[in-house]
Design a protein around this nucleic acid. Structure first.
Lengths: 215, 215
DNA sequence: AAAATATTTAATCAAATGATTAATTCAGCG
DNA sequence: CGCTGAATTAATCATTTGATTAAATATTTT
């Protein structure tokens, strides 16, 4: 019964949770094939057999992490967006702000999801239909109403969505390249991401008022 | 000596080239760890031992593909951009058009590079310094001159670059999600990408004329 | 405390995987 | 042809890797 003096960072967790945390970290960072069960065991500081004892197999454990990650990713999008009847400009501000906060906390998630989606389209595909479509349709409807009302210029919903998501997520995905090319340190990077919370809505707004968006 | 009647698509190549092509396809699509040497041998239609005979090891072969991919990725950026003294608006048109054509031909490259860069920062880092910096500095210089001249509103070079690259590349990276969320078929997708050749420069231009780009 | 149950460990297994070897076939050349 | 080196093959090796087992330890229940 040695008293553990704040030993291994967050490691006063149960064995099961230690394994899951280690798996989450490694899988999310490197993907399924790159991570060996022994890596997870080492990272969690537990015996290899315990992984199978608690989670039956590497694949089962991965699927668990996968689903949790995907849920996280989706929740990051959907919060506070669906029901409220606020104007689109203000809604964009909230979406972008929330999602940049989210990406700051989970910078590895987008690449994980994109990779998973490429190598395993079917599993995630279904969840997109059920979980993302509602949000999309709500937002896109609002967009199209604004177009009809003449408030903004016509634009393909695909372009609108690609721009919104691209402007928000890409800096985090492309961070290693961008930061090196433009020569920006970590502190400056985060400062810039905070700026983008205000700037992206402005830019999207500018885009939505640019003529000749169609044809 | 059976006459091969246009047998296996592009497979009148030498054995060495067959292996390389198979490796390029699989590595670029799935990454190093997911691809087994036996997969490459099968895809190339050759005996497993030939892989080591020609390329010594899986790792050597991967590094070769890696470097070629990276070079491709960089050439995609740098063409026609550096020296010419054309105005920034027109230069953007060329960059975007060239790069969308390039991405249409090599849609798997961005994700490959981003993954490689995350798991292996050092190797590629050096090449960014030598190969990308010159282009960057030229383009950024031109941007900052335009800002000084009052032609465009002030903007952080990082934001400018992230927006340009993000708007151009992200639709290709996020294609599986976007296409499903917005419900766009493959033909429509390519049509939209062609549209973006004209639209992205317009949008960037709108962004560059948005006030309060800096806090 | 004793029994029962849950957790943990060390050792080992079987399959997968990267690599090598030795033998065989092929191609060019005198 | 018959020789020579390159190309190819089948078989095998050694290591890695996911998984299992049986024994040991800890915890809970009675």
């Amino acid at each position: 019964m040695k008293k553990k003096i704040a030993e291994d960072a967050l490691k006063d967790l149960s064995t099961e949770e230690k394994i899951k945390e280690a798996a989450r970290k490694l899988f999310t960072q490197k993907g399924y094939a790159q991570v060996k069960t022994r890596d997870i065991a080492a990272e969690a500081g537990i015996n290899l057999a315990l992984l199978n004892y608690y989670f039956r197999s590497k694949e089962k454990l991965f699927e668990l992490i996968m689903m949790e990650n995907f849920k996280k990713f989706m929740d990051g999008i959907s919060v506070k967006v669906v029901d409220e009847k606020i104007p689109i400009a203000e809604k964009l501000q909230r979406i972008v702000e929330d999602y940049i906060d989210f990406l700051t906390k989970h910078p590895d998630l987008p690449l994980f999801i994109l990779n998973e989606l490429r190598s395993n389209p079917s599993i995630i595909a279904a969840r997109i239909d059920t979980e993302v479509r509602p949000i999309r349709s709500h937002l896109i409807n609002q967009l199209q109403e604004a177009i009809k009302a003449g408030t903004i210029e016509p634009i393909e919903p695909f372009h609108f969505m690609a721009n919104l998501v691209g402007l928000t997520i890409f800096p985090f995905i492309g961070r290693p390249i961008l930061q090196r090319v433009i020569n920006v340190n970590d502190e400056k990077f985060h400062q810039l991401m905070q700026e983008r919370k205000k700037l992206i809505p402005l830019w999207i707004n500018a885009i939505l008022h640019t003529k000749k968006n169609l044809n």
